[in-house]
């Protein structure tokens, strides 16, 4: 396969950045999208040029490190798939593919396709946990959790924190990420103790980080590699309203 790549190049956070075009002649369909980048980088190094910086790690679709927008879609055209699990058989010979970094004010570009997603960490630090010290808990089976609840919690917990929801949202809103974490914990009995505080603190931090406001466009769910549902956003809305208005908790 022959592929033309238009890739965003930006030396560092201060650089203005621009698209560069690269032509690849021997791409095979079994290659992953990132392996195509490996091949391109090897060619660039051979020419003593600077290889393209892109983030990746596990290449199994679970670590959430990859952060590129491929032809206008975070993680590319295949639904429920991270960029690293995307294979070239999804493209056709002669295609031109445009690759950009995740774009959000809260995710500044550091270099080429690498962005800073530490805003997500700060949101988790604001309340995305259950306050239990090591060694305190009682026996695991002393707290039965209905299977349906455990599964709803699990499907929210499947979030890999990649930020595709923010990248996909026309408003760069982080509601899907925040709501997935709030849902994961607030659904479980052990998470209920701090549920009120959690919903308020995490929304507060999300707003401070400069993410946009959710307007229910649902692009987040459409592009989420773990197919996390906007039902979680509705749940966060409920949790937040009942906490901020209906409870005495205030953060």
């Amino acid at each position: 396969m022959k592929i033309t790549l238009k890739v965003w190049r930006q030396k560092d956070a201060k650089d203005k950045g621009r698209f560069e075009t690269y032509k690849l002649d021997n791409v095979t369909e079994h290659m992953s999208f990132l392996e195509m980048f490996d091949v391109l980088n090897e060619e660039l190094i051979q020419k003593k040029e600077t290889p393209i910086a892109f983030e990746h790690d596990c290449r199994e679709g679970i670590c959430g490190t990859c952060s590129m927008v491929i032809n206008g879609r975070p993680h590319g055209p295949l639904q429920g798939t991270t960029a690293c699990q995307l294979h070239m058989r999804m493209f056709n010979d002669g295609d031109t593919i445009v690759v950009e970094p995740f774009r959000a004010r809260a995710f500044p570009v550091l270099c080429d396709l690498v962005v800073d997603r530490s805003a997500f960490d700060r949101i988790i630090q604001s309340g995305g946990f259950i306050s239990v010290n090591t060694g305190q808990p009682q026996d695991a089976n002393s707290l039965p959790v209905p299977k349906e609840v455990a599964e709803a919690s699990f499907s929210a917990a499947a979030c890999i924190g990649c930020g595709a929801c923010v990248a996909a949202c026309p408003n760069a809103s982080a509601m899907l990420f925040v709501s997935a974490k709030v849902s994961h914990l607030n659904l479980l009995p052990q998470g209920k103790v701090e549920a009120k505080r959690r919903a308020q603190s995490m929304v507060k931090q999300m707003d401070l980080e400069g993410f946009g406001n959710c307007s229910n466009v649902t692009a987040c769910e459409a592009e989420c590699p773990k197919e996390i549902s906007i039902k979680n956003i509705a749940r966060l809305n409920r949790e937040y309203m009942s906490s901020a208005v209906g409870s005495e908790t205030e953060v």
């Binding site: 445009v98 950009e100 500044p108």
Partner: peptide
């Protein structure tokens, strides 16, 4: 919130 540069595609 999108930031200074939007998407090309």
């Amino acid at each position: 919130a999108r930031g200074p540069i939007g998407y090309a595609v």
